[in-house]
Nucleic acid binder design. Structure first.
Lengths: 190, 190
DNA sequence: CCGGCATAGTTACAGCGTAAACATAGGAGG
DNA sequence: CCTCCTATGTTTACGCTGTAACTATGCCGG
């Protein structure tokens, strides 16, 4: 029963849903907890919300747009997790390390969502001509890396390197190439 | 016209293809040069070879198996590229660094194939119960990392770290998160 | 020469993304 | 208060997909 009983609705069934867009996103995120992104169908999300498949098109131009919306929510959560980890560690160098640990932890806890974030062309700064998002990036590492790429400074390279380590670690673990071992994470980041 | 004219066939059309399995793999690899893996359909590969869709099932139990075969070929090529790079640099520390550069270069040159390799559960040592492949891994980094994961030695962690850096770099570049810049690769690996 | 078996083809089905046409309702203007 | 507009949701339909069942072809051993 993948229907998440959010909302205030007293199980009435009005013709008009009320807030379909958010409901679709919520259902999508819910499904991504147990399913991977490419096996997720638009029709399944619509079914979960109890709505016809084509009504999705009133809120998203196509399936890709729905996926992008899910990815954007994922990006926000990932950014929040990193910020929270950094603050909990009191900022500074220790805070930055915690940011990396949070990154990997988020990936392992939300495999499908994490993958979706980086599989979304619309969220990729180097692509996405209409880069309405590019400066709204909530990713600490991305911001640092972006600055890096421009002036090519020493600190910039370090930021990219740090991002690459945690991203590589996360991906390799998600793909079953290396064991999901906390000790490995700690040692590789330190 | 995505049909690659491999083979000795003198454009005859015998009922029996001769070597459909290899032809399907060749066509698949060819299509992966211009298309990404998830948009690749079994029917399209069959069409490219000039054969009915269901005849594919004589050689592969399902689409997944075809994709795994493609991924395996990709893995072999990636391993070969790394070995060649290492040898060209004369082995040693410089050779190891070249191995990493070759890894990223391969990813940028064959985006769809590279992604497919790591999207194939059957090639993931940590999954794939019937790990008929696990010891046949042609990936230098994977071997080093595998040894690392077991005895948890210092050298092992370094191997994993190195793998994570190049893998992360490759993925982030493929995903358009950082520019595909040779200078960045050199500095991040160095 | 022929019979069987590996190989390929045909047909069929459910599920997908999505376009077009239609239905419903809830708020604005009279 | 009634009417119509518009935003939202539904029905139906199309071509695509992966794959199961059944049929056709042709090579190779007896």
């Amino acid at each position: 029963m993948p229907v998440n009983d959010n909302t205030v609705n007293t199980d009435k069934k009005p013709y008009h849903h009320g807030d379909l867009r958010d409901a679709l996103i919520a259902e999508g995120l819910c499904l991504l907890d147990s399913r991977d992104a490419e096996s997720l169908s638009l029709r399944e999300v619509a079914r979960g919300v109890g709505v016809s498949a084509t009504s999705v098109y009133r809120h998203f131009p196509d399936k890709q747009a729905l996926m992008t919306a899910l990815a954007l929510e994922g990006l926000t959560r990932l950014g929040a997790a990193q910020r929270a980890a950094a603050e909990a560690a009191g900022g500074g160098k220790a805070g930055f390390a915690e940011t990396g640990r949070a990154y990997v932890r988020f990936a392992l806890a939300n495999p499908a969502l994490f993958r979706l974030i980086f599989a979304s062309p619309a969220l990729a700064p180097q692509k996405a001509a209409g880069g309405m998002h590019s400066e709204a990036s909530t990713l600490l590492l991305a911001n640092a890396a972006a600055a890096a790429a421009q002036d090519g400074g020493e600190a910039g390279i370090r930021a990219i390197q740090a991002w690459a380590v945690v991203h590589g670690l996360a991906m390799l673990m998600l793909d079953g190439q290396i064991p999901e071992d906390d000790a490995i994470i700690d040692q590789a980041i330190g």
